[in-house]
C-alpha cells in the first residue's frame, strides 16, 4: 500500500469517526431526545406516586371504596374516551404538518387542546363533587384520610400535566402557524401529549376502578 493510499484511508477513518461522534443518538435529534429523557424521568415520577399509593393501600386496613355510582364511572369513562380521542387528533395534526398542510395541522392541534380543556373541566367537576361530599386533602367521610390525600395528589399531578400540555399545544400551534416552529416541534409536543394519555391508562384502573364499591 502506497503512502497516498494510507493517507486516503486515514482521512476516511477520521471522517467516519467524526460522523459517529457528532451523529445524534439513535438517529434522534437533540430536542426530540430531550423530550424522551423528560418522558422517562416523568414516568419515574408517576410510577413512584402509583407505587407509593399501592404500598399505602396495601398496608391500610379498611381501605375506602367510595366510587359506587354509575354517574362517577360514566364520567371517568368519558374522560378516558376524550383523552384517547385527543391522542388521535394529535396524530392527525402531526401527520398533516409533516405533509405540509399547515392549516389542517393547526386545526387538529387546536382540537387536541380543546379536548384537553374538556378533560380538565370534567376532572374539576368530579373533584367538586367529591369536595362537596366532604373530601379534602386531609379528610374524607369514607375512612382513612390517606385515600383522599393520594387521590387528589395523583389525579392532581396528572391534571397539572394536562394543563401544561394544553398550554404547550396552544403555544406551539400558534408559533407553528406563524412559521416560527416546524412539523418537528408539533411532533415533539405530541410525544408529551401521548405520554399524558399513557399515564391516564394506569391512573384509571388503580385509582378509580380498584376503589369501586362492592
Amino acid at each position: 500500500m502506497s503512502q497516498a493510499d494510507f493517507s486516503i484511508h486515514a482521512q476516511v477513518s477520521r471522517s467516519e469517526a467524526t460522523e459517529a461522534m457528532t451523529a445524534p443518538a439513535f438517529r434522534v435529534p437533540a430536542k426530540k431526545m430531550a423530550m424522551w429523557l423528560f418522558i422517562i424521568a416523568d414516568s419515574a415520577t408517576f410510577a413512584g406516586c402509583l407505587v407509593a399509593y399501592g404500598f399505602i393501600r396495601n398496608s391500610t386496613p379498611d381501605w375506602p371504596r367510595p366510587f359506587h355510582g354509575a354517574a362517577e364511572l360514566t364520567n371517568v369513562a368519558l374522560m378516558t374516551l376524550i383523552l384517547l380521542t385527543s391522542s388521535l387528533t394529535m396524530l392527525l395534526g402531526v401527520q398533516t404538518a409533516q405533509a405540509g398542510e399547515k392549516a389542517k395541522a393547526f386545526r387538529w392541534t387546536l382540537i387536541t387542546a380543546l379536548f384537553g380543556i374538556l378533560f380538565a373541566a370534567l376532572h374539576l367537576r368530579e373533584w367538586m363533587g367529591m369536595i362537596g361530599e366532604g373530601a379534602t386533602l386531609f379528610h374524607n367521610p369514607w375512612g382513612t384520610p390517606l385515600f383522599s390525600s393520594l387521590f387528589f395528589s395523583i389525579t392532581g399531578l396528572h391534571l397539572l400535566h394536562v394543563t401544561g400540555g394544553v398550554i404547550a399545544l396552544f403555544a406551539v400551534a400558534l408559533k407553528y402557524q406563524r412559521g416560527r416552529y416546524q412539523a418537528d416541534d408539533l411532533e415533539i409536543t405530541g410525544l408529551y401529549w401521548h405520554f399524558v394519555d399513557l399515564v391516564w391508562m394506569f391512573v384509571v384502573p388503580f385509582v378509580y376502578l380498584l376503589n369501586l364499591a362492592r
Binding site: P24, R27, V28, P29, K32, L91, L92, V94, Q95, Q98, Q182, D184, E187
Partner: peptide, 12 residues
C-alpha cells in the same frame, strides 16, 4: 431541522 426518521404513519 428534520427529525431524521420519516414516520410511516397512516390513518388506517
Amino acid at each position: 431541522m428534520t427529525t431524521g426518521v420519516a414516520h410511516k404513519s397512516s390513518l388506517g
